[in-house]
Design a protein around this nucleic acid. Sequence first.
RNA 1: GCCACCUUAGCUCAGUUGGUUAGAGCGACGGUUUUGUAAACCGUAGGUCGUCGGUUCGAAUCCGACAGGUGGCUCCA
Length: 615
Amino acid sequence: MSENNEHLHSARHSLAHIMATAVTRMWPEVKLGIGPVVENGFYYDIDLGEQKISEEDFPKIEKEMKRIIKEGQKFERFTKPIDEAIGWAKDSEQPYKEELLNDLKRAGTTVAKDLDADELGTITEGDSALDEVSFYQNGDFVDLCRGPHVDKTSKVIPFKLMRVAGAYWRGKENNPQMQRLYGVAFETQEELDNYMVMLKEAKARDHRKLGQELDLFTFSSLIGSGLPLFTPRGTVLREEVDKFAQSFRQNRGYEKVWIPHIAKIDTYKTSGHYEKFPELLKFTSTESGDELALKPVNCPHHTQIYASRPRSYKDLPVKYLETTTVYRDEKSGELGGLTRVRAITQDDSHVFCREDQIEQIFSELIEDAKTAYEILGLKLSLRLSFRDDGDSYLGSKETWEIAQKSIENLANKFELEYEIGIGEAAIYGPKMDFMATDALGRKTQLATVQLDYAQPERFELEYTNEKGEKARPVMVHCALLGSIERFLSIYIEHTAGRFPVWVAPEQVRLITVNQEDKTVNFAQELEEKAKELGLRITVDNTNESVGKKIRSAEMWKVPYTVVIGDKEIETSQLSPRIRRDMVVQEGDVTVGVDEFLQTVANEAKSRINKTSLFA
RNA sequence: GCCACCUUAGCUCAGUUGGUUAGAGCGACGGUUUUGUAAACCGUAGGUCGUCGGUUCGAAUCCGACAGGUGGCUCCA
């Protein structure tokens, strides 16, 4: 850590203490949890029992914090023997602190792994036995803490309280829920102001806002939450990105299949999904007494296509591809825009292969994912999602070990940087997840490649090997976009709604200078020609000023806008207005009608995101 | 699901401490205008103030339930 970062860190941490001090002054009965530094700021978890803090209280709290800062209280460090510390927690009626101290006593210097190490007053390194813990005191406020802090409260940095949110004590759902007060803090007021501006800009490109403004999708409280409805424009988006993602796998010999969206519940008892997600499947029953569920995954259906005829080792790999919707009963509080929905459309694919083919299949998929996201202009980070020690996984531990090892080897082979996510695996196997970051800095999983030994076993899939014996194939699951809805949420924010020509719902807009017949006719002829080339084009011949129609086209973020008037009719030359982000050099372009249309059609076909009109 | 907050016209938002017929801009529609690269002018329509219930002489405003949404927590096959 650089000296600057160190100062920033301790200043933010000190602000967490100051906030706790202020809250304690205002509500002396408050029970404190932990208060660590996070990206851009800090938080403190508090518990006021029945009473709840709301954002309306922030001005008062901030005022009190400023008073404490003005008082210039010294941050003083001292240590206490662990038992004495526990006594302190008891006396001051701080049950959460008491629990932490008891854990510290039991677990020694190694902090309980679900807590931020900074939070606990563990004694400096080298102490094997934990006899003492450190405290920091400012004014009357004493807190278990490892530090470091700034010298005194007056030495902190500009801050702002942002929001209050519920948070379970130690992140466990069964624990009491506390209130988490979030604040941001930066070295200078200017940086803080910049951060606020950045937040505002991120909000401006929020996919939910753009979805409304650009008429891409909508929700209906009647239809239900988490069930997006795509408008004609939004549907173009869906279909274009899907075609794009499918093209990669079609080049690799994947074949399209089709399956219904429901299945007998036994399907998921066999697959193992029922056991882990019993409440998440919605049932309906048939006259004959079968219980049917909406499919939460596609793999079981696909296994049955594989199993529908005998397979030889020569047939493998068998590669299926399908973009289809699955239904999951996501908890209401987790839904949000397109990021998390209940009807999830996956660009799913399943490969049934021999063990010696796994590497080849993975290599193809990794390469395609890299290429695809380069074209999309999205930077992805890689996470290897492995299992934890829990027992909710299918298959033997040994098989998992082998699978995880081979995934890690592949990542290394492709020289991909990765992090390992323990406990992030699917129930049936480890995954390679490609993560994107949204406008607000939240990480989201998009592409995923998963290895699965468990389901072939459960569905008793077979092929005949070269010796004429029955053998078990391995499954590889892959989605390049992941969920189309979630992908679009990221992509809309990434592009700020300025889609490249190949995805743009409206690629060209013609604006007539007036409503005279010859002008309108010329525009309509042009429109016909463009449609023959497969372009998405519209004509704006409304009775509005040219300036206003240009403005409207700008706001719809149309890539090319062409004004049609006498000049164009006479010369058959167009001066297209090109959306700013696609321009590669300054200056106007004049181009013949046919050449213009052909150029745009080519751009759409080759999926480039800058104009090629200057060439 | 849990905690906090939000819901007024198609959209973005005003609406004083509860008090007459709830406002604006944009959009839509009608008319005038025939327009040359980011907003021409005039007019009209549009709201059971999310839904249901309660308190009150009186509710957009206060209380409750439900629905939907936002920010987190937890979860994410």
